[in-house]
Design a protein around this nucleic acid. Structure first.
Lengths: 337, 337
DNA sequence: AACAGCAACCAAAACGTTTTGGAGGATTTT
DNA sequence: AAAATCCTCCAAAACGTTTTGGTTGCTGTT
């Protein structure tokens, strides 16, 4: 592999001159520069980013911490779409992406922040991290600039991007109350996610606005899992025939609820309205098509990378980015009988 | 950030000793080692991988070249699942993953192999690359070890992993001929993919075995796109009412064909049998559920990373990995009327 | 003729590691 | 008692860049 030295030798100049010529400094004669450039091309030279990083102590790399880059999440494309956004945004700015996924074995051996420091990433984006993940705190406490997705923590070196989950949930439930539903349950996710709390909040808010008393036993926990939601919904529907609508904190859980309803012989939407959250691809393919709240996952990723890079480059930027979401009405919602 | 020098100073030894102590060499007294280790911990030291890479000229990094990490592919989870496999496999071996995606703007400025050389990745995995992509040739010609997914090229520094597409396609078509179909069309992908050629081959092979004459006009091109497939199928079905079955080279295209059939008022599977390829998540959610050929995408990724790392570490490994696939019979296939 | 100013170049240090080729002293072997 | 061996340690070079703080020689000004 040709180095800057080889070029210097071939061109009969010092390495300094080669470096400055190639990097566009103007204290080098244009003729010399041209010569150097042509030699560089000839030698098929590409600068060694490792060496450069070492001296500049800048790697132009951002780390992507995904809690579980695993097949469990394969059904909803959440992570993938976010990654697309991150990738586009960061490559636009000339940053490379390095993937840190929490393999259980590796996680024990090395902490996130260790990985980051070793690899000298300039900042990280964390996606899918549970709120009680010990490593979340660790990264935040370290001084590595960091952007969280869907975890609302703000600070000097930490920002976040999320959607307005309270509003999104409220919209969904409002859609149900507008249709005339009064007995509305919520299939929530686990409590280690901020979004669960927010969505519950939105649910309560709309209940209040519609003057519907909140009932504790109408709050179900599906852990964000299809199977769990199905199981929970199955017995719940049995015990609560008065319930005519269920708001689900994720489409995946909504799918589970739909299955439960089918198994109970309950018709959707005639006897039970269901609205989901996320608008995953599947949502418009299931029968009936699922009404849901859309989040622009690509945008989430894109903005996250943008925010991080702004932070890295000292541009002032709001460390708190909240994106819109919108209700998509399909065929799982109808007036109660 | 604490460096090895700080530790040396604090411990009253040379940097050499610190390095050797921390790296487990046995020419250092256990007492000294313990002292160094404790100081390192105290200082919250982590080795600088950049500096280490520079001197060892090893980065322990593999590049992941994805032709389009974009939302176009979002519907099928192909890339994502492969990435999961790659990630698990490589992190198991202690390699980090760096993402190179062909952003059109960036692609023009810097070629793949340049990116790889700059970043000093030790090898690359290429996924979703079209056979006529100029950069494919470039990477192969460079001496960077490289594993291709679904592109069958073999060489000293290049291997591939794929599934047996001829067999898979034949199985699918055999399923149709066994059911009694005689007029079977194929909705193929574009010709820039090896898999298209292979699947066509499998289709022909089974036709021959079933003594059905091959007809050129039964070969359709859906470009691997749902919309395109729908469009092509729509007019084809109109002109060829004798056709009772269509084998599709991807599930996505099968979905398109299903839509076309619906629009034409053709009942699936009663009047038209359809079998897809890939077994994407959607396949079991559409109505009727899609019969298809399953490929274990996770395994493809996993094996690809394994092969690459074997190549990197000089373990002898077969540069050609062909994985099994299997027919999944659901509800889009039935006997012809 | 002396000087300032400028264009074009360069030597050396620095970045944080690993590795090479010893060195010094203690211990064991002859 | 000398020689050989072992244990522990270290100075310096190396990796490929960028940056700092110059130097050299030329042009034009006084």
């Amino acid at each position: 592999m040709a180095t800057i030295k080889d070029i210097a030798k071939a061109a009969g100049v010092s390495v300094t001159t080669v470096s400055r010529a190639l990097n566009g400094y103007n204290d080098v004669n244009e003729k010399t520069r041209a010569k150097i450039k042509s030699i560089a091309e000839e030698l098929n030279y590409s600068p060694n980013a490792v060496a450069r990083s070492l001296v500049k102590s800048k790697t132009e790399t951002i780390g992507l911490l995904v809690s579980e880059l695993s097949l469990s999440g394969a059904k909803d494309m959440f992570t993938y779409e976010i990654m697309c956004g991150i990738n586009d945004s960061s490559s636009e700015k000339g940053y490379d992406l390095i993937l840190f996924s929490t393999n259980s074995a590796k996680q024990k051996a090395k902490s996130y922040s260790q990985l980051c420091r070793e690899r000298q990433v300039e900042g990280v984006i964390m996606q899918g991290i549970k709120i009680d993940d010990p490593y979340l705190k660790e990264v935040i406490d370290s001084n590595i600039p960091c952007v969280l997705i869907d975890v609302e923590i703000e600070g000097e070196n930490v920002g976040f991007v999320s959607t307005d989950n309270v509003f999104g949930a409220q919209m969904a439930v409002k859609h149900l109350t507008n249709l005339g539903h009064r007995n509305i349950a919520i299939m929530n996710g686990h409590n280690q996610a901020v979004v669960s709390q927010k969505r519950l909040q939105g649910y309560k808010k709309q209940l209040e606005e519609a003057s519907i008393p909140f009932q504790d036993e109408y709050v179900l926990n599906g852990e964000f899992l299809e199977e769990k939601a199905e199981k929970v919904a199955y017995s719940f529907l049995n015990e609560h025939p008065e319930v005519t609508a269920i708001f689900c904190a994720s489409d995946l859980m909504a799918l589970g609820v739909m299955n439960a309803a089918k198994r109970q012989g309950i018709a959707v939407p005639e006897e039970l309205s269901i609205v989901g959250y996320d608008n995953i691809t599947l949502a418009e393919y299931v029968q009936p098509q699922l009404s849901t709240v859309e989040q622009n996952k690509y945008q989430i990723g894109f903005k996250a990378a943008k925010l991080l890079i702004d932070m890295l480059e000292g541009n002032k930027a709001n460390r708190k980015v909240i994106l819109d979401n919108q209700l998509i009405i399909r065929n799982t919602t109808a007036e109660p009988k």
